[in-house]
């Protein structure tokens, strides 16, 4: 997993709310192995008609989408199913960051586990970024994780909040299992005491 620090990248307007993970990756693609990749499944049923003909007005079919690394959406992005495939599809398609008004809790956790930076900004800020991108597509944003801000081409900045532990994991580009296993003795001690208190938990 690649560390996330500062990203300057082409941003794609995706002006929709309540984007659920069934839209991001339809259920029929979920049985693939991780290494097989999910880029081609990203928004599969929204990108093309059932005959496979791309729908020209869908954001991911725009000319600037190919090089985009930042997706900008509205509220409750990634709600619904816990499928991590939604994050894998975005990552495999080259996205490093999603800016949205809010995120589904499970999606946000999944994103952090895979080096996809979830940036939540107030509705007004997202509205302004979307206006900018829709007015002149193909613009870049600068997302600074250490300093926690998004900078627009005109120099204006929006600060964002992020869980400090999530931030650290993104900056280091590490999964958490190995780190947690260094606490094995503490976990064992906890479980021993817990079993005495709650012996029906086994």
């Amino acid at each position: 997993m690649e560390p996330v620090t500062r990203l300057s990248g082409l941003a794609l307007a995706f002006p929709f709310g309540n984007v659920d993970t069934d839209q991001i990756v339809p259920a029929r693609f979920l049985y693939r192995r991780r290494r097989e990749g999910f880029a081609d499944t990203l928004f599969h049923d929204l990108r093309a008609d059932p005959a496979g003909e791309p729908l020209a007005d869908f954001p991911l079919n725009r000319p600037e989408a190919e090089a985009a690394t930042i997706l900008v959406a509205l509220d409750n992005f990634g709600c619904g199913s816990s499928r991590e495939h939604a994050v894998w599809a975005l990552v495999d398609a080259g996205f490093r960051c999603v800016i949205a008004v809010s995120f589904g809790d499970i999606f946000r956790n999944n994103a952090i586990e895979n080096g996809l930076l979830p940036v939540a900004l107030p509705a007004e800020a997202v509205g302004r970024i979307l206006e900018l991108l829709q007015g002149a597509p193909g613009q870049s944003l600068h997302v600074d994780l250490p300093e926690q801000y998004v900078r627009l081409p005109d120099g204006s900045r929006f600060a964002f909040e992020i869980d400090p532990a999530a931030k650290e994991n993104l900056l280091l580009g590490r999964g958490r299992i190995a780190a947690t296993l260094t606490l094995s003795c503490e976990i064992d001690r906890f479980e021993q005491a817990y079993r005495k208190q709650v012996p029906w938990s086994q």
Partner: peptide, 19 residues
């Protein structure tokens, strides 16, 4: 509910980091 990475974390450690 959790995603695949957190499932793996629980399998390996029987714990989960949560805010």
């Amino acid at each position: 509910g959790v995603g695949a990475s957190e499932v793996a974390h629980v399998l390996a450690t029987q714990t989960l980091w949560q805010a």
